[in-house]
Simulated assay, not measured.
Amino acid sequence: MARRITLADVALKAGASKATVSLVLNNRESRISPETSERIRVAAQELGYTPNPAAQTLRTGKTQTLAFISDEVLTTRFASAMIHGILEVAESHDQMILMAETEHSPQRWQKSLASMKNRQVDGFILGLMRARNLQKVDIPLNQPAVVVNGKAQGIASILPDEHRAGQQAVEYLVAHGHKKIALIGRPPAGSSEHATMNIPRRMAGIDDAMRTAGLGFSAEYQEVLWEGEAGYLGALAVLEQAPDISAVIAANDRIAFGVYRAFQERGISVPEDISVISFDDEELASYMHPGLTTLRLPYAQMGQAATQILMQEDPANLISGVRSEGNEVLIPMPLIERDSVKTL
Rank of each mutant, 00 (worst) to 15 (best):
L141T: 14
S157P: 10
G150C: 10
E171W: 00
I181K: 04
R211M: 03
H178V: 06
A209F: 03
R202N: 06
S218K: 11
H176Q: 14
S218Q: 08
M197R: 06
H176K: 13
A182F: 07
N142C: 05
A156K: 13
A145K: 14
P188H: 09
E193S: 05
G205H: 07
G166W: 06
N133R: 14
P140I: 10
I199D: 02
D138K: 07
Q222H: 14
T212D: 14
D207Q: 14
N133E: 14
Q143E: 10
R201P: 00
K136S: 13
L134K: 03
D161T: 00
D208C: 06
I184R: 05
I158K: 10
Q153F: 08
T196P: 02
V224C: 07
R132T: 12
G150Y: 07
A145Y: 10
V147L: 12
V174E: 01
I184K: 05
N198M: 12
A219P: 03
G216H: 13
A169E: 03
H178K: 08
Q167I: 00
E220H: 02
P200C: 04
V137N: 02
A189Q: 15
G190R: 10
P160M: 13
L134W: 01
S192L: 10
P188A: 06
A189S: 15
Q167K: 12
A195T: 01
V137T: 12
M197V: 08
K180A: 10
P187F: 09
V174S: 03
R132E: 15
R164C: 01
I184S: 07
N133K: 13
H178E: 07
Q153S: 14
M210R: 04
A175E: 14
T212I: 11
S191M: 10
G177W: 04
G185N: 11
R201Y: 07
E223N: 12
I199E: 13
A219Q: 08
K151D: 01
V224P: 05
A169S: 13
